[in-house]
């Protein structure tokens, strides 16, 4: 992320990059070199997003980096009205994913970011699972005139997949179930499906959703959705993709509950059954 953003700042004079008091150490060099265009604004997300939209209205391309709930939820109206309604482009990069800040509690969790932003027409939502995937998606979307959200995670996949904006990747082919997954959940899903006769599709563009790849890779009459977000985030997309066919739909995801636990992200995954073992058991039951 640091390299892609730094490169854009260096190459394009119309770039502005606002940090919401996070990543200041990592970006200290570009902050020094480009003091006007790279700025640690501080901690007022709604105002910052409005200000960023103002720069976009003059033709600049703003990028904002912060923690997911404080951008997506605290400043949702600014994303909706100052970017989407004004029809200007910009980039929102967040850290924290669903519960990466596991020890900080519910205030810092945001399993609902993707579902929330999917309510904004025209918003691009990118959910890379590795730094390489972030780079590929950022370089395609960062300057395309649209509002783009990049959900980053500290818990990247070990498995690398070449990804393309707007297109899902077929990771494995089988005949019983089409399993679809996103972002950092790929490793667990691939582990879960290692000896299962299923097709696995991997999505790193959450919006616009790639209906076509799902339609073309429907096997059997079953779709199983593995979401590292609130469960059901993609329910509407799957329904639309399989429209006109009798398909059984199941899945795993983060339950819509207030999480009051701490521990590590891994502890949470284990307790929620979002591990290779947990997911495998659910898919096996779903096949039967």
């Amino acid at each position: 992320m640091k390299n892609s953003v730094s490169r854009m700042i260096a190459c394009y004079e119309d770039t502005v990059f606002f940090l919401i008091d996070i990543g200041v150490y990592a970006f200290q060099d570009v902050m020094k070199k480009y003091p006007g265009r790279v700025k640690n604004i501080g901690i007022f997300e709604p105002g910052t997003i409005g200000i960023a939209a103002g720069t976009a209205l003059t033709g600049m391309i703003p990028t904002i980096y912060g923690i997911s709930p404080f951008i997506v939820q605290r400043a949702l109206e600014q994303i909706k009205l100052d970017f989407i309604y004004q029809a200007v482009g910009g980039n929102f990069i967040t850290t924290g994913a669903s519960y990466d800040f596991s020890t900080l509690g519910y205030s810092h969790y945001c399993a609902e970011d993707v579902a929330t932003l999917k309510t904004l027409p025209g918003m691009e939502i990118l959910v890379p699972g590795t730094p390489g995937q972030f780079t590929a998606l950022f370089e395609t979307c960062a300057r395309n005139g649209r509002a783009s959200y990049f959900r980053m995670t500290d818990h990247c996949n070990k498995m690398e997949v070449d990804v393309e904006f707007g297109k899902a990747s077929v990771v494995k082919r089988g005949s019983k179930v089409t399993v679809i997954t996103f972002a950092e959940m790929l490793d667990a899903v691939v582990g879960a499906c290692a000896d299962l006769d299923v097709t696995v599709l991997y999505y790193t563009t959450a919006e616009p959703f790639d209906y076509r790849t799902l339609r073309e890779n429907l096997v059997g009459d079953r779709v199983f959705v593995c979401e590292p977000f609130y469960e059901g985030t993609f329910c509407q997309d799957v329904l639309k993709a399989v429209s006109g066919r009798a398909v059984k739909i199941g899945g795993v995801g983060v339950p819509r509950e207030i999480m009051r636990s701490y521990g590590t992200k891994r502890d949470k995954d284990m307790n929620l059954g979002l591990t290779a073992k947990g997911i495998r058991a659910k898919i096996q039951a779903f096949i039967c």
Partner: peptide
């Protein structure tokens, strides 16, 4: 339409004007 939006946007326009 929604109050509280125009002034931050204007501040952003002014800021962009300064740095450009």
């Amino acid at each position: 339409g929604s109050l509280g939006h125009g002034f931050p946007i204007a501040a952003g326009i002014a800021y962009a004007g300064k740095i450009q």
